[in-house]
Simulated assay, not measured.
Amino acid sequence: MSYVACEPDLVVTRRVDDAAPFEALRNPAFAGGGVVGLMSYDAGARPATGERGGDWPDLMLARYPALLAFDHQTKEVRAVGRGRTEAQAREQAHRAAAWLALARAPTTPSAPASAFEGETAGDVYEAAVADVVARIAAGELFQANIARAWSGRLAAGRDPFDVFLRLSVARGAAYGGFWRLGDRAIVSNSPELFLTFDEESGRIEARPIKGTRPRDSDPARDAALAAELAASSKDRAENLMIVDLMRNDLARAALSGSVQVEGLFKLERHPTVHHLVSTVSAEAAAGFGPAEVLEATFPPGSITGAPKHQAMKVIAAHERPRGPWCGSLFGWGLAGDRNLTASVLIRTAAFEQDDTGWRWRAQAGAGIVADSDPHAERLETGAKIQALREALAG
């Protein structure tokens, strides 16, 4: 499903000095659905790291009374309206349906940024990876996801939506999206599901990604890279560690004995990379709604490490606050149902507007394990950021 919405009738933000951010999700005003939210990585990492910094709110929530829901399997679109009365809801649905008459075929804009500059040199990242490998050898942890960052500004008069259009034309991802709220915007090309939660059935499902190889323009070489990933004991072990972590996280919100691993190491092909993806499911315990499920499992295990709290401490030693990156963009009850779908905000650029235009920041990370090679891990981050690099700077 894909969704289009604008003009929220209720917006709530929670910053680092506010009360626990997850409490806002329990606001009765959001119980009727139509909610889009963004939880920053740092909101979930703070109990482990103690960090209070960062420019982004912990949580941003917006409720949309009118939206369009596109079903890609049935090729249908549904106008959804919400209101205090049936008449108000119907009016909002008509308003959403009218947007279809305004639709036009998108054109691909030129690259909106002139440069794509790393915030630190490549050898600094390799030194961070080497430090994590040494910590693993010393028994401090088993795995940690360590990231590099790039930042810059869009050209005068350019907009983050230009970046989203450039990504979507040829490289749209299953959990990608564009969301702007005030002077902040997110452009995500994420292929990764954090979790889904169906309130009616109680089913929770997570699909963590671990294991990556770049795509290649030569079909034979591309197939060889895919086969290499599928057979890699290192990547399978890395994936399995995160599957075990996600089993533990889901168990905090699940009926005893209901957590299951439904699939391991499925090879998925994306425009710039191959990935290994596994599936973990559970049945929610009584009293667990979307807020409780998110709070029990956040931040996503695939972008922290194992053990989770220690990995977040190690990440904080090498990175500044992540902000939205590796947090989650989620929709709650968008199609008139009781479903929560939350992505992992990888392959994502965060934008902030000031008096002179838009500045942006993007990150890419790699899961570091005992036998990680620092240079190879740096090359992996380059492959992961490639689609965003091209969308921003050509």
Rank of each mutant, 00 (worst) to 15 (best):
W358G: 03
D198L: 07
L193Q: 11
G336K: 07
P374H: 02
A286R: 15
I242L: 00
K313T: 05
P208K: 04
V314R: 01
T196V: 06
A144V: 02
D55T: 09
E51L: 09
V36L: 15
A121C: 09
R78Y: 14
K313Q: 14
Q353D: 12
T304L: 02
L250M: 12
W332S: 08
R180Y: 04
E51Y: 09
L250W: 03
L10P: 08
R378Q: 14
V261R: 08
T212P: 02
T272R: 14
K210Y: 09
V132A: 09
A376L: 09
A370T: 04
S40A: 15
L25K: 06
D42C: 03
D17A: 15
G32P: 08
L264V: 12
I136L: 04
T13F: 11
K234D: 03
A224M: 10
D71P: 06
M246I: 13
H270M: 10
V243W: 01
A223K: 10
E268R: 07
R90C: 13
D373P: 11
A254V: 01
A97K: 10
L245D: 03
R269D: 12
E268H: 12
R221P: 00
V293S: 10
S217H: 11
F194Q: 03
F197H: 14
E295H: 14
S233P: 06
R46N: 02
P109R: 11
F194H: 07
R148E: 02
T108S: 09
V273M: 09
W360Q: 06
E380S: 08
I146G: 03
S328P: 04
W332I: 05
S188H: 07
F30Y: 15
G323K: 00
A29M: 14
L334R: 09
V80T: 11
D354K: 13
G32K: 13
A251C: 05
R166V: 04
R15I: 00
D55I: 01
F22E: 15
L245Y: 03
F142I: 00
A253D: 13
H275M: 11
R90A: 15
P299G: 08
A366V: 05
T120F: 08
R52P: 01
A342K: 01
F288W: 09
P219Y: 13
R26H: 13
D198G: 07
R322W: 00
A79W: 10
L229N: 07
L68H: 07
A230P: 00
G289L: 14
A387P: 04
L229S: 04
G33H: 05
A230T: 02
S190V: 03
R15E: 13
G83A: 14
P65A: 10
T279R: 11
V80R: 04
L167N: 01
G305C: 09
P28E: 13
A155R: 15
S40V: 00
G263D: 15
K234N: 05
G287Y: 15
R247M: 11
H375L: 12
V124P: 01
Y41V: 00
T196R: 14
M246C: 03
C6P: 00
A69T: 04
K266W: 07
A128W: 01
A342F: 03
D235K: 02
V259P: 05
A370S: 13
D55N: 10
I303M: 15
A230S: 13
G37V: 07
F164G: 02
E76P: 04
V259C: 09
L154A: 06
C326F: 08
G287D: 08
I136R: 04
K308E: 01
E7R: 15
H318P: 03
N145W: 02
R90L: 15
E319G: 01
H275S: 14
